[in-house]
């Protein structure tokens, strides 16, 4: 009996929708150009989706506790710049150090949230501004080009497993890890509890302050991984280049992946498909061959259509 209930839950639309929609889009595009159904299409879709996926995963963990992190895309950008500056000299050590630093920055966001009760929107908007300046100042308003040790990082992008670049696999591994964290560990379950009903969680003696710090630290850490993905793809980093426009696609990818914006409902595995979908929309538009001027219009229609299809619509759920 319990198994049947679990099966019914699993096949509920909102679990199945994100991957279904992505494959449907792939199919439609394949009709226009059959190259997309082959290795090349998958390769392009996943390569573009990797940074968005990582940013979206971090965001979905924060959304899970009912907050929002506007600064995580900026964290990845600062990460990318720092990586581009330090990898030539310090190689792998640089990557570890930068990841640690970014996790700390995320944790600071969480700490301020936990102790001052400032709404996360305003808080992370402030940290976003500070990080933007950091990006400009640290990069000296230049484009930092990876001169040495390039292969250390760029292989992540050029090496492919089943036609899919390692940067994307990195995202998949992280998604699986977070799924396990949320479903099977106490920390993860606490996070979901805070997201579903924070007052209840406080009264149940859940250490909500720590939960928040951890959620934001995770966002910072995943942001750092996104920074690695950015540098892997571009071989360079700049404050206004690749990665500077990841915030909204990241949030959209989390939502298309079935994450609830009010908290408590996050499935990192579906966020993978959410990211693929969001990354794929401009590609699909290009492939279908829309007039350059009509592209924005079509992009808007696509986004609405795609999310209409993937939204969780369980009865009684309040959609905000």
């Amino acid at each position: 009996m319990a198994f049947l209930t679990k099966l019914r839950e699993f096949s509920a639309w909102h679990t199945v929708a994100p991957p279904l929609v992505f494959f449907a889009m792939l199919l439609v595009v394949g009709v226009f150009n059959s190259n997309y159904l082959g290795p090349l299409g998958i390769s392009i879709a996943t390569a573009s989706a990797a940074p968005i996926l990582l940013v979206a995963l971090g965001q979905s963990m924060v959304l899970n506790i009912g907050s929002i992190d506007l600064s995580n895309a900026a964290i990845s950008l600062v990460g990318a710049i720092l990586l581009a500056m330090t990898i030539p000299a310090f190689g792998v050590g640089a990557m570890i150090a930068v990841l640690a630093l970014l996790t700390v920055i995320g944790a600071i966001n969480g700490l301020i949230l936990a102790y001052t009760h400032v709404p996360s929107f305003a808080l992370t908007l402030g940290t976003l501004g500070i990080l933007q300046t950091t990006a400009l100042v640290v990069s000296g308003s230049e484009t930092i080009y990876l001169s040495e040790n390039r292969e250390l990082v760029t292989t992540l992008y050029s090496a492919k497993l089943f036609y899919i670049p390692l940067t994307f696999w990195m995202g998949v591994v992280v998604a699986v890890a977070y799924w396990v964290l949320l479903r099977l560990t106490r920390v993860g379950q606490n996070m979901t509890a805070v997201g579903k009903n924070e007052s209840g969680a406080i009264l149940s003696a859940i250490p909500t302050k720590w939960v928040k710090v951890i959620a934001f630290a995770i966002s910072g850490f995943t942001g750092g991984l996104a920074g690695i993905a950015i540098v892997a793809q571009a071989g360079s980093a700049s404050a206004s280049g690749l990665g500077s426009a990841l915030l909204l696609p990241g949030i959209a990818a989390a939502l298309v992946g079935g994450t609830s914006i009010s908290g408590g409902l996050t499935n990192p595995l579906n966020v993978v498909f959410g990211a693929l979908t969001v990354a794929f929309v401009p590609i699909a538009i290009q492939a279908i061959g829309f007039n350059a001027a009509a592209q924005s219009l079509v992009y808007g229609i696509f986004i609405i259509a795609v999310v209409t299809l993937t939204t969780t619509r369980t009865r009684g759920l309040v959609i905000k």
């Binding site: 909204l248 949030i251 959209a252 939502l255 298309v256 914006i261 001027a293 009509a294 592209q295 924005s296 219009l297 079509v298 992009y299 808007g300 229609i301 696509f302 986004i303 609405i304 999310v307 209409t308 939204t311 619509r313 959609i319 905000k320």
Partner: peptide
């Protein structure tokens, strides 16, 4: 009516509006 989160619908109409302006 279609119960789509307002975040995403309005993100879509943002681009739709922009697209109309560009056209």
């Amino acid at each position: 009516k279609l119960k789509v989160p307002s975040f995403v619908v309005s993100l879509g109409t943002w681009y739709v509006g922009l697209g109309i302006a560009i056209l």
